[in-house]
Design a protein around this nucleic acid. Sequence first.
DNA 1: TCCTTATTTTGTCCAAGACATATGAAAACG
DNA 2: CGTTTTCATATGTCTTGGACAAAATAAGGA
Lengths: 309, 309
Amino acid sequence: MKTIPDSSIDAHAACYNIAAVERDTGLSKDTLRVWERRYGFPKPRRDQHDERLYSLPDLEKLRLLRLLIDYGHRPGKIINCSTAELAQLISSRAPIKSPPPEIASIIDLLLQHDVENFRNALLQALMKQGLLRFVTETVAGLNHWIGEAWLSGRIAVFDEHLYSEHIQNILRNAIIAQPGRGSGPRVLLTSLPGEKHRIGLLMVEAVLIAEGAACVALGTETPIIDIKNAVPAYRVDVVALSFSSAITQTAALAGLAELRTLLPETVEVWGGGGALVRARKAAPGVLLLRSFDDLRYALERWRVEHVAH
Amino acid sequence: MKTIPDSSIDAHAACYNIAAVERDTGLSKDTLRVWERRYGFPKPRRDQHDERLYSLPDLEKLRLLRLLIDYGHRPGKIINCSTAELAQLISSRAPIKSPPPEIASIIDLLLQHDVENFRNALLQALMKQGLLRFVTETVAGLNHWIGEAWLSGRIAVFDEHLYSEHIQNILRNAIIAQPGRGSGPRVLLTSLPGEKHRIGLLMVEAVLIAEGAACVALGTETPIIDIKNAVPAYRVDVVALSFSSAITQTAALAGLAELRTLLPETVEVWGGGGALVRARKAAPGVLLLRSFDDLRYALERWRVEHVAH
DNA sequence: TCCTTATTTTGTCCAAGACATATGAAAACG
DNA sequence: CGTTTTCATATGTCTTGGACAAAATAAGGA
C-alpha cells in the first residue's frame, strides 16, 4: 500500500505528495485537485507515474491561502496573488503592533535558542502571575505572537516544537500540583478527530482546575462515539470541546451539533477555541465560549443553576 | 460546500456520511469505497443523491475491523466475518500471563474510572520508586499491560486517552522539577513524521534528565529537514529518535540512515523504541538502543570519550 | 435596516481504473 | 535447520472528470 512518502528521500529537493500537503496545510486532497482544475493553482509537477509533486514554495503559498480563507477571504479572489502579495495581505490585516515587552522578552529567548533561560522565564511568569493570569495573559499572548512570527517566517519549525513542549511541561506541572476535585461541575475535556492542538486544551484545563472544577481530560482527537461512552463512565456534567483555527467553523459547529444529539439532555455541551470566536450561533443546547471569561461565566452559571435544585 | 449533515434530523436512524465514518474509524474515504467495491462490505444505503449513508452497526463493525487489522489480521480474511465473530476474535486475544499486582492494582483503578485514586496511585508509585525506577518499571509495565488489555478489548478508547494524559502530566511534572542541565551530552529528542507516540519520548526524556544529560525535546513528528536545522541552532551532541511498534522496523532504520547522512560526523545518532528492539544492525554511525540500560550505557560511553579529549 | 430570494462560488462525493508497496509464501542459500 | 532472496498476491492511495448541495454573495422588496 502506498503511504506518506519518506520525506527524507527528497528532503533537499523539497517535494511533497498530495497526502503530505493535505497533512501540512489542512486542505483536503479533493480541494487541492479541484483548485488545480479550476484556478490553475497549485500546478505541481508530476513524478514518473503522473502523481503530483508539490514544491516547498507551493506549500508555503497554500498555507497563506488557508489562513486568509479562514479569515474570510474567498479562494477565487486571492488564489492567483503572489506569495508576497498574500503575505502583505496578512500583515496588513492587523495593524502591525509589537508584542508587549514581557511577551517579547520571552519570545526573544526562544529565537535565541536559549533553552534554559526560556524555561526559567516561563516559570518565573507563572510564579509571579499565578496560574489563571499566566494562562489567560502570558500563554495566550505567546500563542498569538508566536503565530504571527511563524506567519512572517521569523520562527523555525523546531522552535515552535520546542515552545509547545515547554508550555505543555509548565501547564501540566501546574495542573497536577492543584489539589483534588473542587465544588464545580465535572467537565470532560477533549477535541474531535482531526483537531491536534493540545495547548488550547491544556489552557482550558488549567483554568477549570484553578476555578475549582473537576476535569476529566482525554487529550486530543477522541471519536464522538467514545465521548458518548465516556460520559456515563465518568459521570460528567459537562462536555467541553476545543477547536483551534486549524479547523473550519462549519466543521466545528457540525461536530458540536452531532455530539448534542448523542448525549442526554442533562449533560451540557460547551465549545470554544479559535475556530468559534467569530461564530454567531450554535445548535440548540450547545454553549459557545468565545473567551476565557465566557468559560468562567459558564461555570458560575452552572453552579447557580445546580445549587437551586 | 457540503458538510457533515445535521444528524439531529436522523438521530434515531443513526446515519453517518462517509466523512463522519472516516473521522470516527480512521479509515480513509478511498479505503471505504474500495472495500465496498472489492469485498462488498460495508454496503451502505444511499440518500436521494446516491451518497453513502452508513448505519451504526456498520460503524461498529468497521471499528472492530480496524482494531484487528492494527493487530496484524488481513482485511480480506476477516471482513466478511460477523460482528460477533470479530468480537470473539478480539476477546480470544487474552494475555497469557497476568500483570504483577502493583501494575494490576493501578490498571484496576483506571478500569473503574476512579480518576482521583488513579492519579494518586501513580504519584505514590513515583514517590516510592524515584523517577528512574518509576519510568523503567511502572510506566513500562503499564504501557505493556494496557496495550494487552486494549488488544483484548477490555479497555475503552477513552480509558486509554485518560491514561495517556495522566502519564504525561506525571512525567512532565517530574521533568520540569529536575534541576537545570547536568554534565552529560546535549541530546535532541524527537520522532519522525508519522510517529505520534509521545509517552515513549517522555520516558526517555525523564531517564536522560535523571542521568544528568541536557535534553532538547521537540515532541513528536519533526520533519527530518527541521531536525537537521535544529542541530546547529541548539548545538546538540546527540540526536535521539524514538520509534514505537506502530512503525515498521524497516521504516525506522531508513529514517535513521537518512538522518545520519544529513548530520555532521561529530553529532551522534541514536535510535530506540519498540520498532527497533529486534533490529540486528543499523546503518554505520547509528547507535541502536534496545533498552533503557542501553541508553544509560550510551550516555556513560559518551562521557568517557569526551572527557579524554 | 432588515428579511427574502436569486445567483455564484466552492468544497465534497462519485465511479472505475491504475499502480506501488506491504505482506506472506515459496525458493534458494549458508 | 535457520536465514535471506524472490515472487505473487493483497491492499491502500492516486488518478480523471463530472455532478451537485451548501455557503456566501448579490439583488430585490417590505
